[in-house]
C-alpha cells in the first residue's frame, strides 16, 4: 500500500463506521509524544475519528466533544491522549494563558482541532489530518510532516 517514504495517505471513508474503523487503524500507528492536527469543518467527522482512535487504543468510555471544555484528557494504558478543541479561541495568546503547553510531553499524544486558532504557538505537528466531504462520505488526507510522522505513517502500511 505504501512505502516507508510515503508522506501522504488519502483513504475514502464512506460512513461513520468506516471513519471509526480508520481511527482504529491510525491508533495502531501512534507513538507517545506525537502531535496531530485535525482539520475539517463543523460536521466533518473530527470527533468521530477521534472516537475511533481512542477505541483503537482500548478506551471504552465516552468520547465527548471538547468544544465546551476545550480539552478532554484520556488515559489509556501507558499513554495520555489529550483531545483539544480550540474552536472558541479568538486569539492565539489564549493558548499560553490556558496553560496548555504543559500537556505536551513524551508520554502524551496531543490531538488538536482548530489548531489554526493558536497559530505559531503550537509545536510542529507530526501528522496533519484533514477531513473533507466527498460524495456522500469523506476523504481523509493525512500528511506526515516530520520524520517521526513519516515513520508512524509507514507503520500503517504493515
Amino acid at each position: 500500500m505504501h512505502s516507508a517514504h510515503d508522506t501522504a495517505f488519502t483513504p475514502f471513508l464512506a460512513d461513520e463506521a468506516e471513519t471509526l474503523s480508520m481511527g482504529g487503524q491510525l491508533a495502531a500507528a501512534l507513538v507517545p509524544g506525537m502531535v496531530i492536527f485535525l482539520e475539517g469543518d463543523l460536521g466533518a467527522g473530527k470527533t468521530t475519528l477521534t472516537r475511533g482512535i481512542l477505541r483503537g487504543l482500548g478506551f471504552t468510555g465516552r468520547v465527548k466533544s471538547p468544544t465546551y471544555t476545550l480539552v478532554e484528557p484520556y488515559t489509556v494504558s501507558n499513554l495520555y491522549l489529550y483531545h483539544f478543541d480550540l474552536y472558541r479561541f479568538s486569539d492565539p495568546s489564549e493558548w499560553e494563558d490556558a496553560g496548555f503547553r504543559d500537556y505536551f510531553n513524551r508520554d502524551s499524544v496531543c490531538l488538536i482541532e482548530w489548531a489554526d486558532k493558536a497559530e505559531g504557538l503550537l509545536p510542529a505537528p507530526d501528522w496533519l489530518i484533514r477531513l473533507e466531504p466527498e460524495a456522500d462520505g469523506r476523504r481523509l488526507h493525512l500528511t506526515a510532516l516530520t520524520q517521526n510522522g513519516t515513520q508512524c505513517l509507514a507503520r500503517l502500511a504493515r
Binding site: L70, Y87, R88, F89, S90, D91, S93, E94, D97, A98
Partner: peptide, 12 residues
C-alpha cells in the same frame, strides 16, 4: 463580538 465564549477573556 468574538463569535464564541473566549476562555482567556473569561478567566481574566
Amino acid at each position: 463580538e468574538y463569535g464564541g465564549v473566549v476562555p482567556e477573556l473569561a478567566s481574566r
